[in-house]
């Protein structure tokens, strides 16, 4: 049965192999060119630490001008790969069989529907995941060569960085694949399944990207009015921020804005100075500022939550696929 699935899946597997070879070649070549650039611009020090010459120097500017687009494209490729796996491998897997009626051939042989289905799933999915992980590692290897000169400087929680690290790409690919198979068995039309999978995956991916950060333990920072909340920013994931009253209760954003606005002028309508304004705030009930955030060092926790959500959805969708196929006539 594995042979049958393999033979049926051959064009996609060959394409995957080509993607791997071309992708790996491109990354190796680009990385080596980039390392040459770093050496020739004498920016090696900026890869691991941020000095003044790394931020404003013209050499750093030259480097960023030359390489930011390429590096971002590399990230985007890994970000897009799960969607492509869903659209080109997941969606047609069963939809094409149902569309051409060839499922009837399999269903009337002695192989069970469950075995037929699982063999197809494994043969289609496993190589795709292997290619994804390989390319993810290669791009990661390329990105670390640029280090803080490259996109890594925007922190682990930046959309482009978060989506291509740790278990997230695999989980997203699993979800996209499962979504593709499910839409495929429900629609029974390859093109419809591919289109719906792409749109649904994009929507879910964006909708959930804000949610996952809220599901891990956060840290909280409270400072007096006028003091800096910078410690909660940087590479961290900001979850929430706002004002607290003297009792430590959260003040709603609208009310806080109104109070802060009111403090800008005296009752007589004279404009207050910055110091006077800061002194006015606690008197009006805006005692402290607070921020909750996930420290950059805890990014792995967010990745795990992300992976479990998408993985869980994938399992549900695969169960749905199996359910529909068992009822298929």
């Amino acid at each position: 049965m594995i042979w049958v699935s393999w033979r049926r899946q051959r064009p996609q597997l060959i394409t995957l192999l080509a993607v791997l070879v071309v992708g790996a070649g491109a990354v190796v070549l680009l990385r080596s060119n980039m390392v040459d650039t770093i050496n020739s611009l004498q920016l090696n020090g900026c890869v691991t630490r941020v000095g003044p010459e790394c931020l404003e120097g013209s050499r750093a500017g030259d480097f960023r001008g030359a390489w930011t687009t390429e590096l971002n494209l590399g990230q985007a490729a890994i970000l897009a790969l799960p969607a492509l796996i869903g659209v080109f491998i997941g969606a047609p897997l069963f939809a094409r069989e149902l569309e051409q009626g060839t499922h009837v051939l399999a269903f009337t042989q002695s192989v069970s529907r469950t075995r037929w289905m699982s063999s197809k799933l494994v043969v289609a999915l496993a190589p795709a995941l292997v290619v994804l992980i390989a390319l993810q590692s290669l791009v990661s290897w390329w990105l670390s060569a640029a280090g803080l000169l490259g996109p890594r400087s925007s922190g682990s929680f930046h959309f482009l960085n978060f989506g291509i690290e740790h278990a997230s790409p695999v989980a997203h690919a699993l979800f996209a694949f499962a979504l593709g198979t499910f839409v495929g068995v429900v629609s029974r039309r390859t093109l419809v399944a591919m289109t719906v999978t792409l749109s649904a995956f994009t929507v879910v991916r964006f909708a959930l990207s804000d949610v996952v950060g809220r599901l891990v333990p956060t840290q909280r920072l409270e400072v007096a009015a006028g003091e800096s909340l910078a410690e909660s920013r940087g590479g961290n994931l900001a979850v929430e921020s706002g004002w607290l009253d003297a009792a430590g209760q959260r003040v709603s954003t609208d009310r806080a804005d109104a109070l802060a606005q009111a403090c800008k002028t005296t009752a007589a309508g004279v404009r207050r100075t910055q110091e006077e304004w800061l002194a006015c705030l606690p008197r009006s009930g805006l005692a402290k500022q607070y921020a909750t955030f996930v420290p950059e060092g805890h990014a792995w926790q967010v990745h795990l939550v992300d992976a479990s959500i998408f993985g869980g959805l994938a399992v549900l969708l695969l169960a749905g696929t199996a359910w529909v196929l068992r009822r298929q006539s």
Partner: peptide
């Protein structure tokens, strides 16, 4: 069962199709 629309794996050769059916039985 011979279905009316003759479902066969069209992208295979007759020889490969025979092997596929053998594998499924």
């Amino acid at each position: 069962f011979l279905a009316q629309d003759r479902p066969l794996y069209r992208d295979l050769t007759v020889r490969e199709l025979t092997r596929a059916c053998a594998a499924m039985n």
